[in-house]
Design a protein around this nucleic acid. Structure first.
Lengths: 188, 188
DNA sequence: TCCAATATACCAATCGTTCGGTACAATGGA
DNA sequence: TCCATTGTACCGAACGATTGGTATATTGGA
């Protein structure tokens, strides 16, 4: 098991960071080059199809991080409440307390749609499935569970947008504190 | 009262549409030129500071439309429930049933921050104030009203993101049907 | 005649991309 | 063991196209 990250893995991390800061259209090759410390031409060594490949790699990396920080804790052993706490902590970490945007948002704007179609959809689908399964376990019907999961993702994405617009992480933090209740409560 | 829109007003509408489709970075001058049917020279005649001015004009236009479709109905005479219905209808119209994005989201990404700082914040602030005032009228305390308003904006923005990502307007529609209850209900 | 509005032509800068090439490590047959 | 070969990792320079923006000329209605 390699302790040292490969150069490519480091690059993907940096690229993901840049995309989450500037969006797809805003993340120019120059910026991506500066962010990775790799020359523009070197980027094409790791990502033969250029920006498109970089977006895909960034999306896959982000998805993997969400699985690790949120979905796996939810699927683990233990009390529901504890798992939900771990998942919200994971969300806070992944979104840096609300300071970093979500690629689901950024990759559904402008040219990103043509460059990497379906990428955002698959990301949100995975999250929806994981949340719905937990909501079902918490006592919701299959139908209710789906709605609860959707509501959770809506609040997640929305709180990130509002936090960004207001220049404050409070909306995101408040959303995190609401999340466990949203999924656990059975009363309508 | 002019029935015919001035050439500039028509241009602003088209520009707003283009920004809402492509985001700030994605809306190039060529696209804006094509969308308005105006040559670059004409665009710079109406918007001397170029893209930046266009973004401001689009933001102001969007804000005015939201005032007209949502905020004024909320502040009008009549039963609260009726006003909320009109406001949700206004939201549905402004966002084309969930098919069109929100500039609050798009203008907080990439270069837009530098070009038009504070634009998104002022937009979301106006909406928050209007919603909070209605929530207060519905029986919430000042503090609760603020939180309820924030929650409403979060769900609005979030449902637009999720709808975009899923390629379905259902999440937005469901959010609209939740909205009145969110603001009206006094029980915790 | 005036001036808002549009056209034509152009600019430097940057875009995403490709080219030709270097440095170095690993491989493998003689 | 030698060394030719191959693969990996990277780079600077340049590509054509497009970016946002400007300067100057022309048009046309009041």
């Amino acid at each position: 098991m390699p302790v040292v990250k490969s150069s490519r893995e480091e690059a993907v991390d940096a690229i993901m960071r840049e995309f989450r800061m500037s969006g797809y259209d805003g993340a120019s090759l120059s910026r991506l080059s500066a962010a990775t410390g790799l020359g523009k031409s070197s980027l094409y060594h790791y990502f033969p199809n250029g920006k498109e490949d970089m977006a895909k790699a960034a999306g896959e990396r982000a998805a993997a991080l969400v699985v690790e920080a949120v979905i796996e804790p939810l699927a683990a052993e233990g009390a529901l409440k504890t798992r939900l706490q771990k998942a919200t902590a994971g969300l806070s970490k992944f979104y840096h307390g609300g300071k970093t945007s979500c690629l689901v948002d950024l990759f559904t704007i402008g040219e990103a749609n043509d460059a990497a179609p379906g990428l955002a959809k698959s990301m949100v689908d995975a999250l929806l499935r994981a949340l719905a399964s937990v909501a079902e376990e918490a006592g919701h019907s299959k139908k209710e569970a789906k709605l609860v999961a959707e509501q959770a993702v809506i609040e997640l994405e929305g709180s990130l947008v509002v936090s960004r617009a207001m220049g404050s992480t409070r909306p995101f933090q408040r959303m995190l504190s609401r999340l466990p209740g949203l999924i656990l409560k059975t009363s309508k």
